[in-house]
Amino acid sequence: MSASKRHVHIESDYISLDYTASAEQARNVADELAEGFPEFEVTVDDEVKEDAPPLPCARLWE
């Protein structure tokens, strides 16, 4: 997996999701969710999982 790809983990009481995204997309989605949805815990790291799907609508987060 490319070094520019990041692992995005989104969690709340009811969901636990893992995605891959570019560094920019990961940062932007984490910032937006933190601002608008404080009930979500979003972490971004380099632990990219080969089987994780790409971030839905990823181009919106560029």
Rank of each mutant, 00 (worst) to 15 (best):
M1E: 02
A3G: 04
A3N: 11
A3S: 08
K5D: 06
K5C: 00
K5P: 03
K5Q: 13
H7C: 12
V8M: 02
V8W: 01
V8F: 07
H9P: 05
H9V: 13
H9L: 06
I10E: 05
E11I: 05
E11H: 05
E11R: 13
E11K: 06
S12D: 07
D13G: 11
Y14W: 09
I15D: 00
S16M: 05
L17T: 00
L17V: 06
L17Q: 12
L17I: 07
Y19G: 02
Y19T: 04
Y19N: 02
Y19C: 00
T20W: 02
T20R: 14
A21D: 04
A21R: 04
S22G: 14
S22A: 04
S22W: 00
S22V: 00
E24D: 08
E24Q: 09
E24I: 08
Q25N: 06
Q25T: 07
A26W: 09
A26R: 08
A26M: 12
R27D: 15
R27K: 15
N28W: 02
V29H: 03
V29G: 09
A30P: 03
A30L: 05
D31M: 11
D31H: 04
D31K: 14
D31R: 15
E32Q: 13
E32I: 11
L33R: 05
A34V: 08
A34N: 10
A34R: 13
A34M: 07
E35N: 02
F37V: 11
F37R: 15
F37W: 06
P38N: 12
E39R: 14
F40Y: 10
E41H: 07
E41M: 11
V42E: 06
D45Q: 06
D45H: 08
D45T: 01
D45C: 09
D46H: 13
D46Y: 03
D46W: 10
E47D: 15
E47Y: 09
V48G: 12
V48R: 15
K49Q: 14
E50G: 08
A52W: 08
P53E: 15
P54W: 02
L55M: 02
L55W: 01
L55N: 02
P56E: 04
P56G: 01
C57D: 11
C57T: 11
A58D: 00
A58Q: 03
R59K: 00
L60Y: 01
L60C: 07
W61D: 00
W61R: 01
E62H: 05
E62V: 06
E62D: 03
E62M: 08
